[in-house]
Simulated scan of single mutants.
Amino acid sequence: MADPIAITRTISIEPSEIEESFVRASGPGGQNVNKVASAVQLRFDLQNSPNIPEPMKRRVAALAGSRLTKEGVIVITSNSHRDQKLNRAEAQARLVALLREGAHPPRPRIATRPTLASKKRRLEGKVRRGGIKRLRERPDLDD
């Protein structure tokens, strides 16, 4: 049996959870593109994966966007190489990168306030800019 694919130190997925199908790639490649199914379509059932915790599933689902189907399956297609083995490795690497990105919860933002000095600099800049614009006005003819 194949070794599990490590996502983090504590989370890994079984290769049996990944389903791969090979299709003909579009684009350049000459007559070879019409004969060889070199593009890979990788499918990973995120919703029913027993190895991924529920909070991580929610984060990964948000990150996956249009790559996630209604059934909760992540579909990654790779056809940038002419070699099936390279496309397969790239698709798997993209899946692992997506899962690693969703493995860590985002750090909460800590609200901060601007310092007094930065407030003063901002107001001085506004006054300076207003002065420049005032010099562009048409001169007063009454004087």
Rank of each mutant, 00 (worst) to 15 (best):
L46H: 00
G102E: 00
Q92D: 03
N34G: 08
I11N: 03
Q47N: 03
S38L: 15
R88C: 14
K126H: 09
Q31L: 03
K120C: 08
R24E: 03
R121L: 13
K85G: 05
P4V: 01
A6K: 14
K57R: 05
R67H: 14
R24W: 07
F22L: 08
A39R: 05
Q92S: 14
S66F: 00
A25W: 03
T10Y: 08
L63S: 11
E90D: 15
P55R: 03
S38I: 12
I18E: 14
A62I: 02
E101F: 01
T112I: 14
E20M: 15
N79F: 05
D142C: 08
S16I: 13
A91D: 10
K120S: 12
A103Q: 06
N87F: 06
V60E: 04
G131W: 02
S21N: 15
K85V: 08
Q92C: 07
A117G: 14
G27F: 11
E101C: 02
R129S: 15
I7P: 09
P15D: 09
E17Y: 13
P4F: 02
S66E: 10
K119T: 07
P4W: 02
P50C: 01
A64W: 00
L135N: 11
A62P: 00
R88K: 07
G125Q: 14
A6C: 07
R134H: 06
L86I: 09
V96R: 13
A39Y: 05
A103T: 07
R88S: 09
M1H: 13
V127N: 06
D143A: 06
M56F: 02
P53M: 02
V75C: 12
A93P: 04
V96C: 13
P108M: 10
T69M: 02
G125K: 05
T112M: 10
V96E: 05
R59D: 06
T112H: 11
A6S: 07
K85L: 09
A64Q: 00
N48Y: 00
I74Q: 04
S80N: 06
R43V: 04
V23Y: 01
K120Q: 14
E17C: 14
E124P: 01
R88T: 15
E101V: 09
L63Q: 04
D45K: 10
R94F: 05
V33Y: 02
R24F: 08
E101Y: 11
D83M: 08
R122S: 15
P114H: 08
R121I: 09
K70P: 04
R58L: 08
P15M: 11
R67F: 03
N48F: 00
R128L: 12
R24P: 12
H81D: 10
M1I: 11
L116G: 11
R88Q: 11
R109K: 11
S66L: 00
P108K: 12
R128D: 14
A117M: 02
L141Q: 11
T69R: 00
A89L: 15
Q41L: 12
R128A: 15
G27Q: 01
G30Y: 10
P28K: 01
R88E: 08
K119V: 14
L86D: 09
R88H: 10
I5S: 13
L135G: 10
V75G: 06
L95D: 09
L99P: 11
K85A: 15
S16D: 15
L42T: 02
